[in-house]
Computed example of a mutant assay.
Amino acid sequence: MVRRHELTDQEWELLAPLIPRAKTGRPLGEDRRVINGMVYKIRTGISWRDLPERYGPWKTVYTRFRRYALTGIFTRALQQMQTRADAAGDIDWLVQIDSTIIRAHQHAAATGRKGGASGRTNRMITPSADPEAD
């Protein structure tokens, strides 16, 4: 049974060969459980410590996630899957950007104040009289 926020059997079949095997002979089932923990964390946004127990110790999942990220395993896996999908004609690389969805932040306005440019801008600061001159 595949739970929500976990890899399907088809997704796992694509990903499993791209995940490095440990020298200790860790069973493939454990790899899937740990990677499902990573997927669950990313898709839900929970903290590592709140990871459900069914994925194993949270620190194990976090440590493996960090190692895979730092060594580029995720990047290489994505590139290999994209290459395979592109060769099969499953990817459409056409990208369009609609400028109506790109908005400036509210503070990017020219004046930033109600009333426009007539607000206090570039105030002149005058030095006070020299107290020792008296």
Score class of each variant (00 low, 15 high):
residue 2 V to G: 01
residue 4 R to S: 10
residue 4 R to W: 00
residue 6 E to F: 01
residue 7 L to D: 00
residue 8 T to G: 02
residue 12 W to I: 05
residue 13 E to M: 09
residue 16 A to S: 09
residue 17 P to Q: 09
residue 19 I to K: 00
residue 19 I to L: 05
residue 21 R to K: 10
residue 21 R to M: 09
residue 23 K to Y: 13
residue 23 K to I: 12
residue 23 K to G: 15
residue 25 G to I: 13
residue 26 R to V: 13
residue 27 P to C: 07
residue 28 L to P: 03
residue 29 G to Y: 05
residue 30 E to C: 10
residue 30 E to H: 06
residue 30 E to P: 04
residue 31 D to Y: 07
residue 32 R to Y: 01
residue 36 N to P: 04
residue 37 G to P: 05
residue 37 G to A: 10
residue 37 G to Q: 04
residue 39 V to R: 02
residue 39 V to I: 10
residue 40 Y to R: 02
residue 40 Y to G: 00
residue 42 I to L: 07
residue 43 R to D: 13
residue 43 R to T: 13
residue 45 G to M: 02
residue 46 I to T: 05
residue 46 I to R: 00
residue 47 S to L: 02
residue 49 R to V: 00
residue 49 R to C: 00
residue 51 L to N: 01
residue 51 L to R: 04
residue 51 L to S: 00
residue 52 P to K: 06
residue 53 E to I: 04
residue 53 E to Q: 10
residue 54 R to I: 12
residue 55 Y to L: 03
residue 56 G to M: 02
residue 57 P to V: 14
residue 58 W to N: 00
residue 60 T to M: 09
residue 61 V to K: 01
residue 62 Y to S: 05
residue 63 T to R: 10
residue 66 R to D: 05
residue 66 R to H: 07
residue 66 R to E: 06
residue 74 F to C: 07
residue 74 F to L: 06
residue 76 R to C: 05
residue 76 R to Q: 15
residue 76 R to N: 15
residue 78 L to D: 07
residue 78 L to T: 07
residue 80 Q to M: 06
residue 80 Q to Y: 06
residue 81 M to A: 04
residue 82 Q to V: 15
residue 84 R to K: 12
residue 87 A to V: 12
residue 91 I to R: 14
residue 91 I to H: 10
residue 93 W to E: 09
residue 93 W to K: 03
residue 93 W to V: 01
residue 96 Q to R: 12
residue 98 D to M: 03
residue 101 I to D: 10
residue 107 H to R: 15
residue 108 A to P: 03
residue 109 A to G: 11
residue 110 A to P: 13
residue 110 A to Q: 13
residue 112 G to E: 08
residue 116 G to L: 04
residue 117 A to H: 04
residue 118 S to T: 12
residue 118 S to L: 12
residue 118 S to V: 13
residue 119 G to Y: 06
residue 120 R to D: 11
residue 120 R to H: 07
residue 121 T to N: 09
residue 121 T to Y: 11
residue 125 I to C: 08
residue 125 I to K: 12
residue 126 T to E: 06
residue 127 P to K: 14
residue 128 S to D: 15
residue 129 A to T: 13
residue 129 A to D: 13
residue 130 D to T: 11
residue 131 P to T: 11
residue 132 E to R: 15
residue 134 D to W: 14
